[in-house]
Each structure stands twice: as structure tokens, then as C-alpha cells.
Design a protein around this nucleic acid. Structure first.
Lengths: 331, 331
DNA sequence: AAATAAAATTTGATCGATCAAAAATTTTGG
DNA sequence: CCAAAATTTTTGATCGATCAAATTTTATTT
């Protein structure tokens, strides 16, 4: 292994000058820098990341939880998010360290380990809930963090207690509903999950608002189903027997696929349906869907952790919230 | 931050004794150990991972590439693999560091960086090809690695040049074909990609072998389509016009979904179709599929890198190959 | 050209742990 | 009970870099 000492010896300068060439080239005179650069390339030197971390007390690493694989249609959004985060982090000189956890307690243990061991400079939370214990723990431990998911309850971006970015689900279903109202007809139904899930209620709200604001038929039903193709198919099968609907806005692609299958079954393959998440399955079946743009979320979170141009993590990051407007993909 | 020195002072012993309590408790006398343990819990001490890495020259971290998000039906296998790897790695005291790359050259750069900076102890390659440049580079650099994917060309597990684990695609299609021969009829067609992709040819071989070995109809066709729902749908639409087939074994779920749609369209919703990868989309549509079990691949790769019970990476790991038999999921 | 200011470079200390060898203690055996 | 062996504990060096302060060199001013 080539060390900074080797380079210094070869270039006939001191360690620190080599260090300066790498970290603060402006401090070094041109001819000196050239000598050092020549030595660096001749020896193939690269700074040892571990030694640097020990000295600077910065790991340039952020931790991200990988959820237990759900097996369902969803989960893809998170995968795309992790991918985008990794790419964006790289351009800012950060690395992404994974940890897997199936439960909150398991995740809390991991958070402790990462913090105790000084392994990461910041943590990205996903899927935050009201009074999130992880957020609490991270605050206690004084570990910078940002969340993919709004702090339900206090959603005013101006008075956030920590940085967060979330998809504006209501905006997504609003756009979907407006599209169907214009393109299909006034009787646009909503197929959602049973009430009281925060994400679900948010998406329902968008439909309600668009129906009220536009030319929506007040009588258009709100149907409830667990998140699964078969369950949704059953629910919509029943619906299509009696009700005359022009289109269905769904809270997820799994629901949309079920609705689509029920429509085909009922001899109405042209019934307009819009899903949510824009998964490969919806794409494969040609179902329109609301695309979450997890890449924007990833970029937004890093901006918050670091400031838009910085290359180091703010401590603590400014507590602001950002809602990303999703995009309707029409098929 | 609590250091080993703080603990030593509080317990009234030396640094090294504290270190021994943590890393080699057998070397420490019982009463001493108790004192130290008490101090550790009182102060909430945890060893600094970065300092330890610098001294031991081991990072206990493995690097894994995250592919560019493909957007298609596939990709999920890799995500599940990364997840399983993270979980298994954790139980062996390893961390998983991600890097994103879109091209081979980009990946080679990342490999160099990770090796130069001493960031990882080993790298996991995915999607290996014949004469893989990454494998070559890693060998040159003396970085331990293992691959998800066989070294096409020399597939005899006994004479591998590096450790690898792969899914036995032929075994998967063999099982799928045998199942359809028994359950549907002798005319089992194969819907695959254009020839000369290694994975594709492997999967086709399984079908051929099972057809020859079982009661397969020699005349059953082998149809070719690019990997996409629409393309496959078109190909099978044509097929179903003339040919009478009892079932179709497909090289991917995307193809299977296309075939399924064509079958429904042709008024044969009961036509037996088997896909490959067992994606959420296939599950949602109730299409049988071959499940790759990426969890086993992850476990197998770590066993190879570390030995089945060890907690440190062998250098170099023994070059052996392992084919994991996939599992047919009947729906 | 000397005095002063500014810039460039070097030196010594440090980050927090483990390794290797030395010193202190306990155990064993005659 | 003492010497030798075995065990336990401590000390000093080190991993490879950066920080802070000291020193040297160059540039500016009078």
C-alpha cells in the first residue's frame, strides 16, 4: 500500500504538502504541486479513506435502512429511491451503507450501533410515522438525519422538527382524477385501502378535492379494499354489477391491477383506471399510474442534509419539509 | 464520545485490558473482566469502528454494485439479492456498501476507488459475462471477490477461477416443462429471447432436455421475442392462430405476461404458462413462475468469501462454483 | 536594502483503537 | 518455600491521514 509518506519522500516534500495538494491545492505553489502530482501518479497513490475518517471524524457515509422485502407490488419505489440516493450521494462524495431491519426495535438497535461505532455521519429514515421513535432516538443521539416521509401530524413544511421530503399523494390523485374527469366522464370512483392509514387518506383526499373542484359526480363511490390484486378484483367486480362508473382512481398499482382485471372480466376492457406507484406490473398491463419520482426525493434529502452545493453534512440540518409533486403517466 | 481510555481509567486498568475484554475475553481474569464490563456499561462505551479498521487493516465491509434501475419487470431479483446479502452480512459482522454504476467502465472506476481507499475487504459482482473485465481487475488488485453469475465458458464448478454462485436456469425450465407435460399436455412451447444470450440459452436448454426426456411433442415450437410484454404478446398472438399448444414455458415474467395477455385475447385464458423470476407482476396476474431464491445465492456467496462459519474474509477465497436450483411456483 | 507582511512549507501532536513485547502477577513443581 | 513456568496486565509503537502551530521562503513596502 502506498502512503502519503511515500509520496512525500519521492516528491522531496513533507507529508502535509502532499495532503494540501489533495485537499487544498490553492495553498501550494505551482511548481511544488506539479512535483507532487507527478509523484502521486508515478506511485499510484490514493488517500486511505479509513485513516482520513479517523482523523477528520467524518465518515462521509450515510446509513439507509433496507426494508424487509415485502413481496408485493410495492417496495419498488424504495428500491428506486435507494438507487437514486446512491448515485446522488456519490456525486457529493458520500457513500451509502445499508442496514436491514424488520422491526422498529431492530432498526433502533442498528441506529445505536451505527452511531456508537461512528460508522455514519447521517441517517436517512424511510416510512416515518406519527411520533416516530427513530426520529426521537436520532435527536437524542445528536445524529443528523432526514426522512423520506412526512412527520404526520405537523405537516406544515415551515415548522418541521427535522428535514423531510415526501411525495404529495393528494396531488397525484388530484391529477389522476382531473384527468379522468376530463377524459372519461363525471363518475370517477376511488378505490382505496381501509381508512386511517395516513398515506391512504392522503391519496383519498386528492380525489375528493378534485371531484369537488371539477365536474365530478357527487354520487361516485369510494370503495375500500385491502392492498391486493384479488381483493381489489372482488371489490370492483361487485361495483361494476350495479354502478355505472366512468373511471377509477386507485391508491396503489396492486388495487389498479385488480380493478383492471375485474373490468376486463365484466366486458369493459376500456374502463379508465389509474394506479399509483407506476410499477413494472402496471406498465406491463398498460395501466396509467402516478409516478412518485423517488429520484427527486433522494436529491431533495441530500440537499437538505448538506445544503444544495455543499459537500459536507450540516449539523444539525435545517428542519424543513418538501412535498414532491408526482407525475401522472398516461397509458 | 467515550473512548477505550475513558473506560480503562474508570475501571482502573490499562487500555489493552479493556481491548482484551472486548476482543479476547478468555485472556482476562474473571474479576478484572467484571470491573471492565461494569465500566463499559456505566459509560455506554462502544469501540470506534473507524479506529479499529485503521489498526487492523480490515474494514469488515463488502461492496455491492447497484445496477442502473432498468424499469422493466426484472431488476427485482437483484433487489432481493441485495437485501438478503445485507441481512446475512450483518449476522457475520459485515457491512454492505453500495456503489452505483451504469457501465462497465464506471464500475471499474468504482472498484479502483474502493480498493485504493481501502474501503472494502471484498466485492460482490453481479451479472458476470465471459472474460469479465471486472474479475480481471479484481484479481490484478488482489481484492477478494465472489460473483452472482457463473463464469460463462468454464462452468465446471470444480475448476472455477473465482468463487461464484448462480441460479441453475436450465433446472428451472426443466421443472417448469416437466410440470406442464404432466399437467397440460405434450405440446409445450418455449418462448425465449433471441438466441445467443447466455442466460437465455441456458433456460432454453432446460426446456429442450425436459421435452426430450419426457413425453414432449417434438413439433412443439420455440418462439423468439425481445424481452417485453408487447413484443411477447405479438409473438404469441401469431402462434395461437395456427398452432395448437398445451402450454408455454417462458424465459422471463415479462414474456409470460405477454403470452398470458395473448392467450386471454385469443379466448384461451386457461392456457398454462410459466414465467421466470417470480416477480410481483406474475404473482398479481396469477401466472406460475420459477422463483430464483436470491436469498440462497447471497448466503452461498458469503459462505464462499468467509468459509461457512468464519467471521473474516478468506484471502483469497477458494475458487468454487455453486448452482442453486430454483423453485417452481405453481399458481 | 532592510523591515515588515504574506504566503508556502514543515514539524509535532492527534484521532481511537490493536499489535507485539515487556513487566508484573499468579500458579506449579520440586 | 523458592525457582521456574504460565498466566495476566501494562507499555510503547503503529495504522495513515489531518490539524494547529512553528518555521522558512517569497513578496511588498518604505
Amino acid at each position: 500500500m502506498v502512503t502519503i509518506e511515500d509520496v512525500a519522500r519521492r516528491a522531496g516534500v513533507s507529508r502535509q504538502t502532499v495532503s494540501n495538494v489533495i485537499n487544498a491545492p490553492a495553498k501550494v505553489r505551482e511548481p511544488t504541486r506539479e512535483k507532487v502530482d507527478a509523484a502521486i501518479t508515478a506511485l499510484g497513490y490514493a488517500p486511505n479513506a479509513v485513516a482520513r475518517r479517523l482523523r477528520t471524524q467524518r465518515t462521509s457515509t450515510i446509513g439507509v435502512r433496507l426494508d424487509a422485502y415485502s413481496g408485493g407490488v410495492s417496495g419498488v419505489v424504495l428500491d428506486r429511491f435507494v438507487h437514486a440516493l446512491t448515485e446522488h450521494a456519490a456525486t457529493r462524495g458520500l457513500r451509502v451503507l445499508l442496514y436491514a431491519a424488520r422491526t422498529v426495535d431492530e432498526e433502533l438497535r442498528h441506529i445505536n450501533e451505527l452511531a456508537d461505532g461512528g460508522e455514519v455521519d447521517a441517517i436517512i429514515l424511510t416510512g416515518t410515522s406519527r411520533d416516530d421513535r427513530r426520529a426521537e432516538r436520532l435527536r437524542e443521539r445528536d445524529m443528523p438525519f432526514a426522512a423520506f416521509g412526512r412527520p404526520w401530524g405537523t405537516e406544515d413544511p415551515a415548522e418541521a422538527s427535522h428535514p423531510w421530503v415526501d411525495i404529495d399523494g393528494a396531488a397525484g390523485t388530484r391529477a389522476a382524477t382531473a384527468y379522468l374527469l376530463g377524459d372519461a366522464g363525471p363518475r370517477v370512483a376511488f378505490l382505496g385501502w381501509p381508512p386511517d392509514s395516513e398515506t391512504g387518506d392522503d391519496r383519498e383526499r386528492g380525489w375528493r378535492e378534485a371531484m369537488a373542484a371539477g365536474s365530478g359526480d357527487r354520487a361516485a363511490p369510494r370503495i375500500s379494499s385491502e392492498d391486493g390484486v384479488a381483493q381489489a378484483q372482488g371489490a370492483i367486480r361487485t361495483l361494476l354489477k350495479d354502478d355505472a362508473v366512468d373511471g377509477i382512481v386507485c391508491a396503489s398499482d396492486a388495487l389498479a391491477i385488480g380493478a383492471h382485471l375485474a373490468a376486463v372480466e365484466a366486458g369493459r376492457p376500456g374502463l379508465r383506471i389509474v394506479g399509483f406507484d407506476n410499477t413494472a406490473a402496471a406498465e406491463a398491463l398498460g395501466i396509467s399510474s402516478v409516478e412518485q419520482l423517488p429520484e427527486r426525493v433522494a436529491a431533495g434529502l441530500l440537499d437538505m442534509l448538506m445544503g444544495p452545493e455543499e459537500r459536507r453534512i450540516s449539523h444539525p440540518p435545517a428542519p424543513v419539509g418538501l412535498l414532491v409533486e408526482p407525475q401522472l403517466i398516461v397509458r
